[in-house]
């Protein structure tokens, strides 16, 4: 197995820049907004043609965590319903998505470990940003703010949107990412970056993960137990999905 180390959830630390660039591009594609005129006045605004904009930087790994940990995502969907978040009020929607995630064995097949740093899930994106930049897709710019704290902004070119659309159409894996990101957008639409972070921190497994180590995946039985507790009925899985329970 190329001497690779095994991790919980069957993930490996080896990263592939094309995979990260594609997945994060799709997140930016869905969560970015058109550049406002005021933004264009900033010194950090690129001199090249850009169409859309995404900030703050730390929101990106929070959203990426939800994509890379389907088990946590399923748990948080139930939690959103329990917390009466408007987007998750419909129990049928939540139950359907949780069933789908677990029956498709996503926690086993789709989990990609994330390292934990000071502010939770975080990875350096230098390679990805360079990959984007070299291909004229996304430009990263630092804003020197008056409070002294720099803030990174991602600017998406028109080419980036075209590439993303083509990617979704052409590559099956990208379609899955696209669907998952849309689902995240559907349920987390009204939540701020800090809300999302707080939700993730509310889970001990996440909160207590050691620095610089990968965040352990959530045992499926915890999701099942939470489902039973919140919805008052058992979560029935298809037989193939029970292997990992």
């Amino acid at each position: 197995m190329n001497g690779s180390q095994r991790y919980i959830g069957g993930s490996i630390p080896e990263r592939f820049v094309e995979v990260d660039a594609a997945r994060l591009l799709l997140i930016l594609h869905h969560f970015s907004a058109p550049c406002e005129e005021q933004l264009k006045l900033g010194k950090f605004f690129p001199e090249r043609d850009v169409e859309r904009h995404f900030t703050p930087e730390y929101k990106l790994p929070k959203l990426d965590f939800l994509v890379r940990y389907p088990g946590y995502f399923a748990y948080e969907l139930i939690e959103l319903h329990r917390l009466n978040i408007a987007s998750a009020n419909n129990p049928d929607d939540v139950q359907r998505e949780v069933h789908s995630i677990l029956n498709d064995r996503e926690p086993e097949l789709r989990t990609q470990p994330f390292r934990r740093f000071w502010y939770g899930a975080h990875e350096r994106l230098n390679e990805v940003e360079a990959w984007w930049h070299a291909r004229g897709l996304v430009y990263a710019r630092i804003e020197r703010r008056s409070d002294g704290k720099p803030q990174k902004h991602y600017f998406l070119t028109n080419e980036a949107q075209l590439v993303a659309d083509k990617l979704i159409q052409a590559v099956e894996h990208a379609k899955w990412y696209d669907n998952r990101i849309r689902l995240i957008q559907q349920f987390y639409d009204g939540l701020s970056a800090s809300d999302i972070r707080n939700l993730q921190y509310s889970h001990p497994t996440y909160r207590d993960a050691q620095l610089a180590r990968t965040i352990p995946d959530l045992p499926i039985r915890e999701v099942i137990a939470h489902y039973q507790q919140v919805f008052g009925k058992p979560l029935k899985l298809i037989e193939e999905a029970t292997d990992v329970v």
Binding site: M1, G10, F16, A170
Partner: peptide, 25 residues
């Protein structure tokens, strides 16, 4: 064995994903 299978399946997914994306890009 379940762990191995999970690992292998995950790895298989990642490799195939990488191949698909490399080809696409």
């Amino acid at each position: 064995a379940a762990d191995s299978l999970s690992f292998l399946r995950s790895r298989e997914t990642q490799i195939k994903e990488l191949i698909a994306l490399k080809l696409h890009f």
